[in-house]
């Protein structure tokens, strides 16, 4: 596998997504066929019961690529840090 085919990314989880997953962050190798944030959520759900539970309602999950909000259809190619969290509740 060539250097640019390697897709090692940092995944971050916040608030109840973090609690359900059971961890705040991990480094992981992503399979090359994953194209969008939605694809990644589908793939994560199959990783185990805690992921299935955390991502059971994709419409309740928000995502950021390299610290910028994105929609589920956003392509993940090139992102180094991908974060998942509930809708924000600051202020």
């Amino acid at each position: 596998m060539s250097e640019d085919r390697t897709r090692r990314v940092k995944l971050l989880y916040f608030a109840w997504v973090r609690e359900k997953v059971g961890s705040g962050s991990e480094e992981i190798e992503l399979p090359p066929e994953l194209d969008t944030v939605s694809d990644l959520i589908g793939w994560l759900r199959a990783r185990g019961p805690q992921f299935e539970q955390a991502f059971a309602r994709p419409q309740a999950i928000r995502a950021a690529l390299d610290k910028v909000h994105v929609k589920p259809a956003a392509r993940i190619a090139g992102a180094r840090e991908i974060a998942f969290f509930p809708p924000v509740t600051g202020g």
Partner: peptide
């Protein structure tokens, strides 16, 4: 905008 975009979560 802060309430809808800044990544804070309250428990």
């Amino acid at each position: 905008y802060l309430k809808t975009r800044a990544p804070f979560w309250k428990k």
